[in-house]
């Protein structure tokens, strides 16, 4: 089948549609809420979006590798429960730093667990990670049965209020992840990941260590979920064993809006980052457009469905015109 030019362009620039959507969403949001661009408001928005952004990046990496990770939300919860109980509101900064470091290993460990089952025991990713999500959620509930605990206000204030050169902390974190991703893309590993996600058989025949690459994608996802867990802990300053649950589906939505196909082998992380921001901006737009109470959920869902379906609709229309 001949590909249209639009398909060609979007294939080479998977984030293009997300960028378009982001610009529209930003424009509408600024129209309705002119002070969105003030650094204080920008910061207050970005600090809320950051946990999802981080989790969505990990999700996108797994999806590029041809898998999916349904357990990311539960990993976020485990990390949150761990930090809130082990650091405590009056914890000293030293312990806090060590625990955050440990949390990253916990996330990677959880990811390795998923990777082991999916890559080496060859179980279906969707079922495996769905099952492990209950395992992790149970673990989180075991660590922290009742919401409580916390982290020192020193840390939450740093997360919530750091604005450098007029730009919120979250933007620097995003810049770092994009830079890291750019480096990864240059390595052989980066090319392997896309090869494994696109055509695992062909990749195997050309000598790509398919299992190891799949395994690693889940470890990366676990690591990003742990970072997301740290971010949400610093945002809320407290622990709740169910805090990560809603992030699972949102992260997949953000990745798909960001041009990462569920079939794997394509996409990037710039798109999912924009996807996560778009999801947040839509909530703002609904709020500031004074949408009637009973319609808010419907309008929110309708915009997301439209965003998900739009690339397909554009392709459909263009194909007819070719």
């Amino acid at each position: 089948m001949r590909r249209s030019r639009w398909q060609d362009v979007t294939y080479r620039n998977p984030y293009l549609f997300a960028l378009l959507l982001l610009i529209i969403a930003l424009a509408v949001n600024i129209l309705l809420q002119p002070n969105l661009v003030a650094s204080a408001t920008l910061n207050s928005n970005m600090r809320v979006f950051l946990p999802l952004i981080l989790v969505a990046i990990g999700q996108a990496v797994v999806m590029i590798g041809g898998g999916i990770d349904i357990s990311v939300g539960a990993i976020v919860s485990v990390v949150n429960a761990l930090l809130a109980t082990q650091i405590g509101i009056n914890g000293d900064p030293g312990t806090a730093t060590i625990m955050m470091g440990a949390a990253l290993f916990v996330g990677m460990g959880a990811g390795a667990f998923n990777g082991l089952f999916v890559a080496y025991l060859r179980l279906q990713p969707i079922i495996t990670t769905f099952a492990s999500s209950f395992l992790f959620a149970g673990l989180a509930l075991f660590i922290l049965p009742n919401p409580g605990g916390g982290v020192p206000s020193l840390f939450t204030a740093f997360y919530r209020e750091t604005i450098l050169l007029g730009l919120p902390l979250a933007l620097y974190v995003i810049a770092l992840t994009l830079a890291a991703w750019a480096l990864v893309r240059q390595t052989r590993y980066g090319r392997y990941l896309y090869a494994v996600g696109g055509k695992p058989d062909a990749a195997y025949e050309t000598g790509v260590p398919v299992r190891a690459v799949q395994f690693s994608s889940y470890v990366v996802s676990g690591l990003m979920a742990a970072l997301g867990g740290i971010a949400i802990t610093l945002l809320t300053g407290s622990g709740n064993a169910q805090v990560g649950d809603p992030l699972t589906l949102s992260s997949i939505t953000a990745a798909v809006i960001g041009g990462t196909p569920l079939s794997g082998g394509a996409g990037g992380i710039a798109g999912p980052i924009m996807g996560a921001v778009i999801l947040g901006l839509v909530r703002n737009i609904i709020s500031f457009a004074n949408v009637e109470t009973w319609w808010q959920t419907f309008v929110n869902a309708a915009i997301i469905v439209l965003a998900l379906a739009m690339p397909g609709i554009i392709n459909l229309v263009r194909r007819r015109n070719v």
Binding site: V48, I232, L235, T236, V243, P246
Partner: peptide, 11 residues
């Protein structure tokens, strides 16, 4: 008023 998580309620 919408179904949302802690981060969403902060927003």
């Amino acid at each position: 008023s919408a179904d949302t998580d802690v981060a969403g309620q902060i927003q």
